[in-house]
Amino acid sequence: MLSCNIKGVSNGFPLRIEAGKVIEKEVDFNPDFLKHMFAKIEWKALVEGARSMGYAELPEDSPDATVLDSGDETFLRKLHHALLELHLEEGALVCPETGRKFPVNKGIPNMLLHEDEV
């Protein structure tokens, strides 16, 4: 998910996720990492991305950074799941501008451009 999200906002616009198969992997919960990443995340793109992978628990609007240190882990747990535990196994990342599809097979996005696109 991280990589999808990362790519999701490549070139300044979020790529749409076309989910074929989504898998969930359990990853150790690490608040420090999440706090570190929170500042770098483009919230809307993450919410969109998670939703297209079938996870709609994230709040629509980016929460205030204070929630990270509030002692309430609910939000961090959700962020953790969306960011690290959801994996797009099969599907595509679609450029909203051109409709160009980047296929994802066995969890590997293929972002290579054809010669005429470079």
Binding site: L2, S3, K7, K25, V27, G107, I108, P109, N110, M111, L112, L113
Partner: peptide, 8 residues
């Protein structure tokens, strides 16, 4: 685990 991406 790592995120593997096919890209230039």
């Amino acid at each position: 685990e790592a995120d593997v991406i096919c890209t230039d």
